[in-house]
Design a protein around this nucleic acid. Structure first.
Ligand SMILES: [Zn+2]
Ligand SMILES: [Zn+2]
Ligand SMILES: [Zn+2]
Ligand SMILES: [Zn+2]
Lengths: 125, 125
DNA sequence: CTTGACCTTGTCACCGGCGTCAAGCTTTAC
DNA sequence: GTAAAGCTTGACGCCGGTGACAAGGTCAAG
């Protein structure tokens, strides 16, 4: 199939697909007229990329998952490199949550300090 | 004082100070040779900006705090506009925390799905 | 033949908060 | 005198993932 069909089937822009190719995440054959040509396995790969990105993975994070799928494994997350990314990502998210909680209490403290009573009495200026 | 001294006293780069001025957050008089000239109230203002940024506020978020200080109030967070920013920011942080928690569980679920057992047995591939 | 859908490469723009040159002036210290 | 700081404006780069052009080539339907 060509780029437009792949884009429609996965629900992604053609611009995104060309970008993924430029970054080396997907590949394409070229037909005689220069058009990119894809097959079913590419649908699977791009779907995997989008799933990962939808939960906050970057394109680089997705690379080992793509490699895993290409090497014939049924799941992109079963190779050790993918597992390492999962673990790193979970740790990253945990750290971000901790940071946000800390920032939240700092903001609340500054707020209480600058305007005592405002946190409780919502209507006051 | 000149820009270098202000920068040293607050612990910020001269580049940052010029940027704040460009964005309209701080002002400066110019001496005969064209150098920027600041006074003590600017130390307070820039300190306030940095405190806010250190807990995740953007420069725009800091603007009402600066205005509040300039209007003579002892605390930058006591004017209604600042209070509104505090409330908006707390809500924003809360939303981000909720999003992260949701993403965390999605990632954990994908992980468990792709490689059952990996979450528990840390040494396994 | 023409229109229109689809494809190609290439480039600029975005967002925030600066870092980091560049090229030149002023002032200070020795 | 001269070298080292310190000051000025201006402009590019970064980071990620595209959106939105521009200026064309290709192909099927009417
Ligand atoms: Zn694998
Ligand atoms: Zn109040
Ligand atoms: Zn005020
Ligand atoms: Zn495993």
């Amino acid at each position: 199939m060509r780029i437009g069909e792949l884009a429609r089937r996965v629900g992604v822009s053609t611009r995104a697909l060309r970008y993924y190719e430029q970054r080396g995440l997907i590949r394409s054959r070229r037909s005689a007229n220069g058009y990119r040509e894809y097959d079913e396995s590419d649908v699977r790969i791009v779907t995997e990329i989008r799933e990962l990105m939808s939960v906050g993975f970057t394109l680089e994070d997705a690379r080992p998952f793509v490699d895993c799928l290409r090497s014939g494994h049924p799941s992109g997350g079963s190779c050790p490199e993918s597992v390492a990314v999962y673990r790193r990502k979970l740790a990253e998210i945990d750290r971000e949550i901790r940071d946000l909680l800390a920032r939240r209490s700092e903001v609340a403290a500054q707020f209480a300090d600058a305007c005592p009573g405002c946190l409780l009495r919502r209507g006051e200026s």
